[in-house]
Computed example of a mutant assay.
Amino acid sequence: MTNELQKLVDQWRVEANIPGVSVGIVHGDKDIVVTSGIESVETQLPVTDKTMFMIGST
Rank of each mutant, 00 (worst) to 15 (best):
T48H: 07
D31M: 10
M52H: 04
E15A: 14
V14G: 00
D49M: 07
E4T: 10
D10I: 04
M54G: 03
G20T: 02
S36N: 04
D31K: 13
S22P: 00
V9F: 04
S57N: 10
V26D: 05
Q11Y: 05
K30H: 14
E15M: 08
S22A: 14
K7P: 02
D10N: 15
V33S: 07
M54S: 08
G24A: 10
T58R: 14
P46M: 01
T2R: 14
I55H: 08
I32K: 07
V21G: 00
L45C: 04
G56D: 10
I18N: 01
S36Y: 03
D49F: 02
Q6Y: 09
L8P: 02
G24K: 09
P46N: 11
G20S: 05
Q6I: 08
Q11A: 13
Q6K: 15
G37T: 04
G37H: 05
V34Y: 02
S22F: 00
V41Y: 03
P19W: 00
F53A: 03
S57F: 01
F53G: 03
V47C: 04
D29Q: 15
V26S: 08
Q6C: 12
W12T: 11
V47T: 02
V26G: 02
D31W: 04
D31E: 12
I25R: 15
V23C: 09
T35M: 02
S36P: 00
V47E: 01
V21Q: 01
E4R: 13
A16Y: 06
L45S: 11
Q11C: 05
V47Y: 01
E15Y: 07
T48R: 10
I18L: 13
K50E: 13
V23F: 05
D29P: 07
L8Q: 13
E4Y: 07
P46E: 12
N17Q: 15
D29W: 10
V21R: 01
G20H: 01
K30W: 04
W12C: 12
L8N: 11
V26Y: 01
G28E: 12
W12V: 13
Q6D: 08
Q44T: 08
D10T: 06
I55A: 14
